[in-house]
């Protein structure tokens, strides 16, 4: 579908994209394995407010939970929320964007007026209100975040499709008798891949941060252990007053690193595909 060497090979040979990939792979490994392998049960309690020791590498929190265990366990939950939101938003956003852009006319009007309604609503307050009224589970959080993320994605995809469909090779496909859906799938989708990949990565990170943000306000599932709830409890139980840096840093730095990783990855992907279409 892409080239002789494949898209993964190309990502790997670009320094920036490779860095981003490595960051994601490391977090994915922590997320997948950390969910099952951790030194202590994340709910087990020990001596409270304990700074890092050999027994508790990241120390313990206000109830004496082992922070490392919580972090390992919670990474998976945060990534699960992020990846689910990215997947749902990309799927809906790409579909709506492609149909809207390619067919135009009434299809475009209906979709885009609906998107307008979703886009003009102030996202975070709406998020807070929805989260406050819906049952507080992680899946609710995923649903709310997806609902509010796909409209922007569909706009980005639509505008790209609008310029793509004027290109001669699309006209050539129409003249050759290719049907609309086949044109979208065979002639247009490949060109959208960089946008889709970059947006998926940003959506993933955005969802992790948004979930942490919600949790920070005490919304969402506070019994779930993830980066967001870790920070929420650290804040509400005055970790700063106790100078418990070991409790705040792991989730905080993790969010920062994955954010930086996503940005650098995005830049790398832009470079790869810029080079590709430039040489086209």
């Amino acid at each position: 579908m892409f080239s002789e060497s494949g898209i993964l090979h190309e990502i790997w040979s670009n320094g920036k994209a490779r860095f981003g990939m490595i960051v994601f792979i490391i977090f994915a490994i922590i997320g997948i394995f950390g969910h099952f392998i951790y030194p202590y049960s994340p709910k087990a309690t020990f001596v409270i407010w304990q700074p890092p020791t050999f027994a508790h590498v990241f120390g313990t929190d206000y109830e004496g939970h082992d922070v490392l265990s919580q972090f390992l366990y919670g990474t998976g939950v945060s990534l699960y929320v992020g990846a689910s939101v990215a997947l749902i938003s990309v799927a809906i956003g790409t579909m709506v964007g492609m149909l809207s852009g390619y067919y135009g006319g009434i299809v475009d009007n209906i979709f885009m007026r609906f998107v307008d309604i979703l886009l003009i609503m102030p996202t975070f307050p709406l998020l807070v209100i929805l989260a406050a009224y819906l049952p507080p589970t992680n899946n609710t959080t995923i649903l709310i975040l997806s609902l509010l993320s796909w409209p922007f994605m569909s706009r980005v995809i639509r505008s790209q499709v609008l310029t793509l469909k004027e290109r001669p090779f699309i006209k050539a496909a129409v003249i050759s008798g290719m049907k609309g859906f086949t044109i979208i799938r065979k002639e247009i989708l490949d060109h959208l891949m960089p946008l889709i990949i970059i947006n998926a990565v940003y959506l993933l990170v955005g969802a992790i941060v948004a979930q942490a943000g919600l949790a920070f306000f005490g919304l969402g599932d506070l019994t779930s252990i993830n980066w967001g709830t870790m920070l929420y409890y650290a804040q509400s139980e005055d970790a700063i007053v106790y100078a418990a840096w070991w409790w705040i840093l792991p989730p905080g730095i993790a969010i920062a690193i994955i954010g930086i990783g996503a940005n650098i990855f995005g830049n790398g992907i832009t470079e790869i595909f810029g080079k590709r279409s430039g040489g086209a």
Binding site: P168, A172, V174, I175, S176, G177, D190, H191, A280
Partner: peptide
Amino acid sequence: RSKTQMIFQDPYSSLNPYN
């Protein structure tokens, strides 16, 4: 559509680079 065809001016943009 099967009986009509077109050859375009710009051979660089009339072929899909991904195909």
